[in-house]
């Protein structure tokens, strides 16, 4: 058997650099996305409701495709119940950060969290 040293110093340097890049990415992603102020609910691409995340409430959205019951609580929003077959929307749980989104494809239903005044910009750099 030959000495089986596979990993070189260069490999370790690459690994550490990429690990640092990942950590920086995680830090940036969690810091750059503030908590949202409101949630826009769309059915089939048409805006149905805008809910302020500061006001706790329970709302059933009905359409020809089915119903989704959304719950706002403590600045977060989730789909609590849905008529769809797979319940992926309900399983996703709570969302509260800007641009976070819950989608229910069978019901053509979506909830998107936005900052105050909706999304005028994709992002802001200072």
């Amino acid at each position: 058997m030959r000495p089986d040293r596979v990993v070189t110093t260069g490999d370790i340097i690459v690994f550490v650099l990429l690990l640092a890049a990942t950590a920086a990415g995680v830090a940036f992603a969690s810091r750059s996305r503030p908590a949202g102020e409101e949630a826009a609910i769309e059915v089939n691409g048409v805006l149905r409701e805008k809910l302020a995340l500061s006001v706790d409430r329970l709302l059933k959205i009905e359409s020809p495709y089915g119903f989704n019951t959304v719950e706002v609580s403590g600045g977060r929003i989730r789909v609590r119940e849905a008529s769809c077959s797979n319940k992926i929307c309900a399983a996703q749980g709570w969302v509260h950060r800007e641009t976070e989104e819950i989608v229910c494809l069978p019901n053509r239903f979506s909830v998107r969290v936005a900052g105050r005044g909706g999304e005028k910009y994709d992002g802001i750099t200072r």
Partner: peptide, 8 residues
């Protein structure tokens, strides 16, 4: 070159 194995 030889500075990196296929791992890197």
């Amino acid at each position: 070159g030889g500075g990196l194995s296929l791992v890197g």
